[in-house]
């Protein structure tokens, strides 16, 4: 017999359910006075460095209908490509960018929206640059485990072409599902859970 590894099993995921807003965006759910502000509502302030953008989109189900009860979280680097996290030991990130955003999709239209800045390039494991991207995490009723994906930028064609993750996607027609469409200071990014144009999700 060899020694025991003493590993624990990860706690299993369960759906966030239809009332996720109560816990994660209580002010949005009209439960006022418990927390001063919903977490992740504001990523930037007046001093944040970088190019201001608004990222909007919808999460669509297998029929193409928008989810009006989902919650989207984002995590991103600052304009110089540093994460505001102790696990990024390369240097100090912009203290005026939290890097973390959380938004409940509209109960009427299903649209989510983030006011943020365009992130810089972050190195891949081998040191090669990854194209600028924002990590997305989507939970909702009917989603049994949070879905991870990334949004890249349509105005970064050259960087996207060299990106170590985008460039290894076998089915090239699917790459487009990871690219947000830049229009001025707006970036549009719809996420399709199923059906034509299903978004690429990651096992990370």
């Amino acid at each position: 017999m060899a020694q025991d590894l003493y590993r624990l099993k990860e706690t299993s995921s369960q759906t966030a359910g239809p009332y996720v807003h109560i816990g994660l965006t209580p002010n949005f759910a009209e439960i006022g006075g418990v927390f001063p502000e919903d977490l992740g509502k504001v990523l930037v302030n007046d001093k944040t460095k970088g190019e201001r953008i608004t990222v909007t989109g919808r999460v669509l189900d297998g029929t193409g209908a928008p989810l009006r009860d989902c919650l989207v979280e984002i995590w991103q680097a600052d304009a110089a490509g540093y994460y505001n996290s102790p696990s990024d030991t390369r240097g100090d990130a912009d203290p005026n960018l939290t890097g973390f955003g959380r938004c409940a999709s509209s109960l009427e239209t299903g649209v989510f929206s983030f006011e943020t800045i365009k992130p810089g390039s972050v190195p891949f494991i081998n040191g090669a640059p990854m194209a600028p991207h924002i990590t997305f995490w989507i939970v909702a009723r009917g989603i049994n485990m949070g879905l991870h994906t990334r949004m890249y930028f349509s105005d970064e064609e050259k960087a996207n072409a060299k990106d170590p993750i985008l460039s290894r996607i076998e089915h090239r027609s699917r790459v487009q599902t990871l690219i947000g469409t830049r229009k001025g200071d707006k970036v549009e990014f719809d996420i399709r859970l199923q059906g034509d144009g299903e978004t690429i999700f990651f096992d990370i």
Partner: peptide, 12 residues
């Protein structure tokens, strides 16, 4: 509810 909200392709 998971029927229409579940990705069908393998994850990357």
């Amino acid at each position: 509810t998971s029927v229409l909200r579940s990705p069908r392709y393998a994850k990357l």
